[in-house]
């Protein structure tokens, strides 16, 4: 999933204290924009994941009678990751049914790394501090001056496909998807001068 989108996490737990606590922790994890929903019964959990697509369900393994992680994934119909809340340690067999486990004594860095690896694919992960390459900066300047991908490709002796790949990477690194947004970025970072562009 995209880094600048919010992560949707459902916390399913009968104890309101554990549920609220976990939900609160998940929303404040540094560097992770999460939005949480709490449900306290199995019928509510099923209604919830069917109506509102979630990325991760954090569930108490002893939750409700017919509950099983596989059943939940099937009901969700998307790529839902199911995480067990470990109040008492689970055995290996039980653990293997889940994508991950979070213990109620888990520390923040460990929760962050677990949620990250569940939610983002590895190639998305290190992107946020990656600087723009020289080529990407050149392309930004040409985009801001109003050139089309085809014109940029001709000017830089690249294929249109390569230009598009560069543009996707630029959008991902800067979290800017619009031409006006790129123009602002380019001016503030002195890649172009305001007098050089047609507004």
């Amino acid at each position: 999933m995209n880094r600048d989108e919010k992560l949707h996490i459902v916390v399913a737990e009968t104890s309101p204290v554990i549920s609220a606590g976990l939900s609160f922790c998940l929303r404040r994890l540094p560097g992770i924009q999460a939005q949480t929903l709490e449900v306290h019964s199995y019928p509510d959990l099923l209604d919830c994941i069917k109506s509102t697509p979630a990325d991760i369900a954090v569930v108490n393994p002893t939750f409700g009678g017919t509950f099983s992680p596989q059943h939940l994934r099937e009901a969700a119909g998307n790529d839902l990751k199911v995480v067990a809340i470990e109040i008492t340690p689970l055995d290996r067999q039980a653990r293997s049914l889940y994508d991950e486990t979070i213990s109620i004594v888990e520390d923040v860095p460990s929760m962050v790394s677990k949620i990250r690896s569940l939610a983002y694919s590895p190639d998305e992960n290190p992107s946020d501090k990656e600087p723009l390459s020289q080529r990407e900066k050149e392309i930004i300047v040409l985009v801001v001056k109003g050139m089309t991908n085809k014109e940029i490709a001709e000017r830089l002796f690249l294929s249109v496909h390569t230009v598009m790949t560069h543009r996707r990477n630029i959008a991902r690194k800067l979290e800017i998807h619009s031409a006006t947004g790129l123009t602002i970025y380019a001016i503030v970072n002195h890649l172009v001068d305001l007098t050089e562009i047609n507004l």
Binding site: S178, T180, G181, T183, I184, I187, V188, L194, L199
Partner: peptide, 14 residues
């Protein structure tokens, strides 16, 4: 009209 403030408003209007 001579700096990014103008562009921010343009972004908003778009």
């Amino acid at each position: 009209t001579d700096d990014v403030s103008f562009l921010i408003l343009k972004f908003f209007d778009e």
